[in-house]
Design a protein around this nucleic acid. Structure first.
Ligand SMILES: [Zn+2]
Ligand SMILES: [Zn+2]
Ligand SMILES: [Zn+2]
Ligand SMILES: [Zn+2]
Lengths: 126, 126
DNA sequence: ATATTAATGCAACTGAGTTGCAAATATAGC
DNA sequence: GCTATATTTGCAACTCAGTTGCATTAATAT
């Protein structure tokens, strides 16, 4: 179930994603907001924002959860599928707007796919 | 560091992967072998077999670790890159031999990529 | 202003994976 | 084979991201 009331916590969390293109890990958000919001609430609000099609989430290579803004998604469903990029040098993670084509697999029905690309970002690739 | 001594635990674990094409989760192995091998040992042996290029590992969508046999890899490095498929109906996970082309990303240097495809497997896709 | 119900904080929990260390066991040298 | 040496193992205790139950707080509707 998504967000029903416009609370402080929701506002604070949304602000963290405002005007920032990067993904942010749940852990980072908990650290950043520790004086304002309890970690349980952070997890719960993120979860609801995902239900509402405001944010989407994915796991990185070490199994930790990242969140980023959606583009054109809604309560009805997440339609904005794309790969994610993690810089192995500075740790920054972001959404890529390129399309990764998944070839058809014989006898199998593909429903979703996750692509995590790792390497060096613009700033670290010198 | 890889495997130095051919111990019972190594033999038992290798046997689990013998003649079975599927990936197996670390948790499943721990459960299966609980009467024979301690879970710490399972994790340690799997880790060493990965170092040796005998097995490779990846995380699924819920952050749990899976292992599968390598094809042509060695201590020197893992060269056998491929996507993995998880059946959303029966939970089975396996390696796919198709190639997923990652397009070049401007200003970024791609080093590795992980692709997890989810859907319905041969047996469940009826 | 009050009632209703959702959201929050807190503490305790879960569960996959890790660490330190003493005991067991594989290997090499004799 | 026996012994010395170093690796591997089991165990218990730990870590850490994420979850749960429940009493309290706060947003919304009337
Ligand atoms: Zn970087
Ligand atoms: Zn994204
Ligand atoms: Zn299946
Ligand atoms: Zn594989």
């Amino acid at each position: 179930m998504g967000i029903i009331r416009k609370t402080q916590s929701v506002a604070v969390l949304l602000k963290e994603f405002e005007n920032k293109p990067n993904a942010i890990s749940a852990i980072e958000l908990i650290k950043r907001l520790s004086s304002k919001i309890n970690k349980t609430t952070v997890y719960r609000v993120l979860d609801k924002l995902e239900d509402d099609g405001v944010l989407h989430s994915f796991l990185d290579n070490s199994g930790i959860k990242w969140y980023a803004k959606c583009n054109g998604c809604s309560k009805t469903g997440h339609i904005d599928m794309h790969p994610h990029f993690q810089c192995l040098s500075c740790g920054k993670v972001d959404c890529l707007s390129v399309e990764v084509k998944i070839p058809p697999i014989p006898n199998r029905k593909i429903e979703v796919s996750q692509v995590l690309i790792q390497g060096r970002c613009e700033s670290c690739n010198v």
